[in-house]
C-alpha cells in the first residue's frame, strides 16, 4: 500500500489506467460444471484473475477431531499456483493463503445451511491460476456459484467486490497497479438478499466518509455480480429447457 511511484493511476479525465471510470467493474465471466469429478465446480475470469473452484461434499469430516456434532464445517482452501504471479510464488500454504482460507471459510459458513449436516465437512478448493488483484473476493464469488451447482443448501449466494483509494479518490474493483500503488484496499462480501456483510477486510487507511462511499459502491456492484452468478448457473439448464420446449 502506498508505495511511491511515478505512475499516474488516474488521468485528467478521471479515467483509470485501463480506461475504466471510478465505479466501473472489470469484465467478468463465470462458468459452472467445468470439472467432471467434483460435486460442483466453477471457473471465474475477473479482469486478469483466473480462478478454478471445486466443491466436494458434504461428506463425513476427516480427521475425526475436526467434526462438529451439530453442524457441518466448511473447509475452504485458497491456493495460488506457482505461476500465478509475476515472480514465482513458492508453492504451498503460507501465512497469507491460510488467512484467506480462513476468512473465505467463515464467509461461506454463514450462507451454507450447516445445521443440516452434522459431523460433515464441505470442501472448497480454490486454485488461483492467474492473479490480478482481488483474488480472495473472486475466489469467494466463484465458490458460492460452485456450492450452488453442487446442490448444497444455502440461505443466499455470497457476492463480493473490492473498492479502494487511489490518488485520494475512492474507486471500485482495484486492478493490480491500483492495489500495489494505491492508498487503501477494501474487500467486502455480502449476502445480497439480506445485505448482511460476511467478509470485510481493510488494507491501508480510509476516513469514515471514504469508507461509507466505498461500501455503498460495493453494494451497488454486488447487484451486477449477483446477476452474472445467476446467469452462469442457469445458462445450461435454460438452454435445454428452451430447446426441448421448441420441439
Amino acid at each position: 500500500m502506498g508505495t511511491a511511484s511515478d505512475i499516474k493511476l488516474i488521468n485528467e479525465d478521471g479515467l483509470r489506467l485501463d480506461g475504466r471510470s471510478a465505479d466501473e467493474l472489470r469484465p467478468m465471466k463465470i462458468e459452472t460444471d467445468v470439472l467432471a469429478r467434483a460435486d460442483g465446480s466453477a471457473y471465474i475470469e475477473w479482469g486478469g484473475n483466473k480462478i478454478l473452484v471445486a466443491v466436494y461434499g458434504p461428506r463425513e469430516a476427516f480427521p475425526k477431531h475436526t467434526q462438529d456434532i451439530d453442524k457441518a464445517v466448511v473447509k475452504a482452501r485458497y491456493n495460488m499456483a506457482a505461476f500465478s504471479v509475476d515472480e514465482r510464488k513458492r508453492p504451498g500454504p503460507d501465512r497469507r493463503s491460510m488467512e484467506i482460507s480462513k476468512v473465505i471459510s467463515e464467509a461461506l459458513s454463514s450462507a451454507v445451511m450447516v445445521n443440516q449436516f452434522p459431523r460433515a465437512e464441505i470442501d472448497v478448493y480454490i486454485e488461483v491460476l492467474q492473479a490480478d488483484a482481488g483474488t480472495r473476493i473472486a475466489g469467494l464469488t466463484a465458490s458460492s456459484v460452485a456450492l450452488a451447482a453442487a446442490g448444497i443448501p444455502m440461505k443466499d449466494m455470497v457476492v463480493g467486490c473490492t473498492a479502494g483509494k487511489v490518488e485520494g479518490q475512492v474507486v471500485l474493483d482495484l486492478s493490480k497497479e491500483e492495489d500495489n500503488f494505491g492508498q487503501a484496499d477494501l474487500p467486502m462480501a455480502v449476502l445480497p438478499k439480506s445485505g448482511n456483510v460476511v467478509l470485510l477486510q481493510m488494507d491501508g487507511d480510509l476516513s469514515v466518509e471514504e469508507f461509507e462511499k466505498a461500501s455503498s459502491m460495493i453494494l451497488e456492484a454486488t447487484k451486477k455480480i449477483h446477476k452474472i452468478q445467476r446467469d452462469a448457473l442457469a445458462g445450461k439448464y435454460k438452454a435445454i429447457a428452451l430447446e426441448r420446449s421448441g420441439e
Binding site: 460435486d39 461434499g57 443440516q116 453442487a150 446442490g151 443448501p153 440461505k155
Partner: peptide, 25 residues
C-alpha cells in the same frame, strides 16, 4: 425462500424446490 439452485414444483397443497444436484440424505 429457496435454499437450492433448482426448479419449483407446485402441487395442490405444497410448494417444493427440487435441486438440480446434491447428495442423498
Amino acid at each position: 425462500s429457496s435454499c437450492y439452485f433448482g426448479t419449483v414444483q407446485v402441487s395442490e397443497q405444497f410448494l417444493d424446490v427440487v435441486p438440480f444436484s446434491g447428495i442423498y440424505m
